[in-house]
Design a protein around this nucleic acid. Structure first.
Length: 283
DNA sequence: GCCCAGGAGTGTG
DNA sequence: CACACTCATGGG
């Protein structure tokens, strides 16, 4: 099933390749292939807008894609607010097409649980391994992300065979700690209450909780802080200190769209090292 | 071999 | 509160 839908501004390479989500691959022809729910989806930029090709295809795939890419976010408005900060104001035009994604809450929670103390290629491998072991198959070598019930049958040793290491125990305990009704209950909580509730879960600390708030529950004020963000905040704002202090700094400075500021800064900080490009600077 | 990776849990001062 | 240590593992 193939159709075109209008989402602007949008840069697929930045949005799907910047490390906020882990199951998309860029093909030789430039199209991005990934899995959304039970759909194998390919995305490419066309003349009119975003060209979506999905299989097996479903009547609501367009709505799924538009929700995932947060098509209704007013990027101009967000950037106007973030532009009050002089550092961001200088480089935001370069990342206009970066959109925060709206992942499935459960997939996001497990993904960022696995992401602790691992690099992005390894995170992607762990997720693919878990998906191909417990997720329903939808195409050749393509599987859905396993639901909570799919995964609740997995033993710790089976999970370790997927290369999870010490994370295997967290996943096992997470399956016992939550079900789909608790995930629905989480949706009704405000950001601060949600992040505290998530932190109650095994293997979920400050950083994972904020990632799940942002990329899973769509709380745009969440500002996850990892080692790259610590570097960016120190380099660009001379801000240092505990997670709590840095989070308060960001919330005050960037307000309700702190999550977008975080992803702009994260993208910039990560790309700065390998190829020398630097979108934002303190000068 | 050495270092680091989108950290969290636990114990201690 | 802050800090130190441990927890597995793969890749540069």
């Amino acid at each position: 099933m193939k159709f075109e839908t209008r989402i602007a501004p949008l840069d697929l390479d930045i949005t799907l390749g910047c490390g906020q989500t882990f199951r998309w691959r860029r093909r030789e022809d430039g199209a991005w292939q990934g899995v959304l729910g039970d759909q194998l989806v390919s995305l490419a930029m066309g003349a009119y807008g975003l060209v979506v090709d999905s299989s097996p295809g479903r009547h609501d795939v367009e709505a799924m894609v538009r929700e995932y890419l947060r098509a209704e976010d007013d990027i101009a408005k967000i950037q106007r607010r973030l532009g009050r900060d002089a550092v961001l104001a200088r480089g935001m035009r370069e990342v206009k097409g970066l959109r925060i994604v709206k992942m499935d809450e459960w997939e996001c929670l497990v993904s960022y649980l696995l992401a602790t103390y691992a690099n992005i290629p390894r995170i992607a491998r762990m997720i693919e391994s878990v998906s191909s072991t417990w997720g329903a198959q939808i195409a050749d070598r393509v599987h859905e992300f396993p639901s909570r019930d799919d995964l609740s049958g997995a033993s710790e040793s089976e999970l370790k065979r997927c290369g999870l290491g010490y994370r295997a125990r967290y996943v096992r305990e997470l399956c016992d700690a939550v079900d789909m009704s608790s995930m629905r209950r989480f949706r009704r909580l405000g950001y601060e209450d949600l992040r505290e509730a998530l932190k109650e879960l095994p293997g979920v600390g400050d950083k994972v909780a904020d990632c799940v708030c942002l990329f899973g529950f769509g709380r745009l004020e969440a500002f996850p802080i990892d080692v790259w963000m610590e570097r960016a905040l120190a380099r660009l704002y001379k801000a240092k200190g505990s997670y709590r202090k840095l989070r308060m700094f960001a919330l005050e400075k960037f307000g309700p769209f702190a999550g977008y500021a975080q992803e702009y800064l994260y993208y910039n900080e990560r790309l700065r090292a390998p190829d020398g490009t630097c979108v934002f600077s303190h000068k």
